[in-house]
Design a binder for these strands. Sequence first.
DNA 1: CATTATTGTCTCATTTTGTGACAATAAAAT
DNA 2: ATTTTATTGTCACAAAATGAGACAATAATG
Lengths: 248, 248
Amino acid sequence: MTPNKKKIFPSREDYVPHLAYDSVIFGYNGKQLKILVLEYHNTGFFALPGGFVKRNENVDDAVKRGLKERTGLDNIYLEQFHTFGDTTRAAPDVMRTILEANNFEVEEDHWLLDRFISVAYYALINYDEVHPRPDELSDSINWYAIDQLPNLMMDHEEIAAKALKTLRENLDKKLTGTNLLPSKFTMKDIQQLYEAINGEKLRRTTFQRKILAMDILVRHEKLFTGGAHKAPFLYSFKANHPKILNAP
Amino acid sequence: MTPNKKKIFPSREDYVPHLAYDSVIFGYNGKQLKILVLEYHNTGFFALPGGFVKRNENVDDAVKRGLKERTGLDNIYLEQFHTFGDTTRAAPDVMRTILEANNFEVEEDHWLLDRFISVAYYALINYDEVHPRPDELSDSINWYAIDQLPNLMMDHEEIAAKALKTLRENLDKKLTGTNLLPSKFTMKDIQQLYEAINGEKLRRTTFQRKILAMDILVRHEKLFTGGAHKAPFLYSFKANHPKILNAP
DNA sequence: CATTATTGTCTCATTTTGTGACAATAAAAT
DNA sequence: ATTTTATTGTCACAAAATGAGACAATAATG
């Protein structure tokens, strides 16, 4: 760290001004639904992973780029759910604090101090495949259970809440959730995932009957765990099932 | 018209650069679901009503402002449904044509020639209460049935299609559609509205049972039309029913 | 070999939805 | 006045979906 030599943040010219994205990245560890939250260096600010859009880049692609940088994953289920455009989103003090804590030069008219409109996406990823990497500005990036989030800066709590609401609404009709499981799983696994997302218990027999009737699962061999009980079948999603979606 | 004296378009400084909105305004005339489409002066370009966001204005408010200018209505059911952010949305030739056809000065770097990210909303309004007014740039603004739209410029057909898709998905769960009817209506009226939106016939008895079970209607006096048959009851939505919504 | 917890499947009750029948009109035709 | 006509509100029953529990099958354990 060289306190006298300040770093220069990427130029205003490189990005679409006033435009940002934020992503709510859902993962599932077999028990709880979690999201990725990062902490900015030396500020105590927790935030959703976000970023900016290059001048000649689709907004969708900017989000994919950010996801790739932070998770290493390429084909991620991604869904845009809302754009947050209130003037109250301008947060020059917060941005100044973050930039200064990271030893960046902050001119009076630095473009990060402007108002930003943020396009928000949620993503579903496999918890186990990912070892998230902090970006340049952040100390850490960690999983937090959906009901145990730290206080998030700006309107990020509202964004996360709306993401969860949308995920729940889409769960049945878009058969999402499918990206949150390993490739083979038991009936109990997928039921617990649905329970974690919806935050309520489901009846075993009804759930099983319903999801089998959907005709989206393939049954495989049995799973022998060493537990003292009947072994469950393993299932996977049918090959033609839209496990990974990037387009609507 | 003074061909030598060119007009000046509002300054780049007044608006958030690269940001626009488009609105899909649904109306219902008792038979068909229609949307408002405008035609730019002397260009043959048909487009959805759109506009720009002032530097110190919420995106939602910009849309409401545009709706008010074009329809005169204040409390409109409005729902944001998607943000279109591909680079392919830049359409300098189209914008230049429109500006020149309207006798505006067009500098090489005029801000309208830039790439725009558009936040799209749909609105539901009462067909009968509205006499749409063309704005400064447009010749006309007219209702078009949803399945008889003219060719729309840029990606506006995609925007309209997605609006309709979202409206259909939201119809049951958000009880929208309610803003498309007069304050009192018969069971047949509301059934026909649902049919127009969904594009499919519904069974009379089932529809009636279902919508009455929702407990959102108040029954009033009968309607005597002069037709040779049993008079139907009139209904209205319950007072506490969210007929007009601006927030989620 | 008995015990134990869990699973797959079946059965029956309950609720919701599909489908048609039918009597009760309001106005026009006779 | 009476009959005719089209439409409406409601009921009745069938079919389908869902809720709720029962039960035998079965991996491991001891």
